[in-house]
């Protein structure tokens, strides 16, 4: 009760959403966040640690946590699970060799109880690269259909390089979260 309900009330008032971006290294998480915020994406170093971006989206304030995906720091992802409303899993659709790695890490993440209520958006990124798998193919490889029926999820093809698909994905995510926690 107590504190948690107060936090919920404050959140509702300010219409805040907490969004966690994760995925393997080199999948384009930071580029997506910067692109959607209209920032320069030409010089981005691999993320050592994490970035937080606060973005106003429609009438909501999104707190986006972009956490580095290098193997060494994946074990720290758990530190960011608390209070997550939306989970964005980013896939490098052109990295065919590491798709099983990608599936394994996603499966582990979805077992996490603290994320069980979070809406899940899967970005099949790098669609602009010739030879990249389509979102439908990524969905098959990740076996998304087999996911827990209670989970709200959607897969969207995108290119952080051109910006294509990013708004479609975030529109769905924000609407889905809003319909869950900001019921009028």
């Amino acid at each position: 009760m107590g504190l948690l309900s107060i936090i919920r009330k404050i959140k509702r008032k300010e219409k805040e959403m907490r969004i966690l971006m994760v995925g393997l290294d080199n999948s384009g998480k930071t580029t997506i966040v910067l692109k959607i915020n209209g920032e320069d994406t030409s010089v981005i170093s691999p993320t050592l640690g994490f970035n937080i971006k606060t973005i106003t989206y429609d009438k909501y304030t999104l707190n986006i946590w972009d956490v580095g995906g290098q193997r060494t720091i994946r074990s720290y992802w758990r530190n960011y699970f608390e209070q997550t409303d939306g989970l964005v899993w980013v896939v490098d659709s052109s990295d065919l060799r590491r798709l099983d790695d990608c599936k394994m890490e996603l499966d582990n993440l979805l077992k996490e109880e603290r994320l069980s209520g979070a809406s899940l958006l899967i970005f099949a990124n790098k669609q602009d690269i010739k030879g990249a798998l389509t979102p439908a193919e990524i969905a098959k490889v990740l076996n998304l259909e087999a996911m827990d029926k209670t989970r709200h999820w959607k897969i969207v093809g995108c290119s952080a390089y051109t910006g294509e698909g990013l708004l479609e994905g975030f529109d769905w995510l924000v609407q889905d979260i809003a319909s869950r926690i900001y019921v009028p």
């Binding site: 065919l96 060799r97 798709l99 099983d100 599936k103 798998l133 193919e137 098959k140 490889v141 076996n143």
Partner: peptide, 15 residues
């Protein structure tokens, strides 16, 4: 690609 992946998803990832 990983053989068990193919079995699981009956979907072959091209090279």
């Amino acid at each position: 690609p990983d053989p068990h992946l193919i079995n699981k998803t009956s979907f072959e990832v091209r090279d």
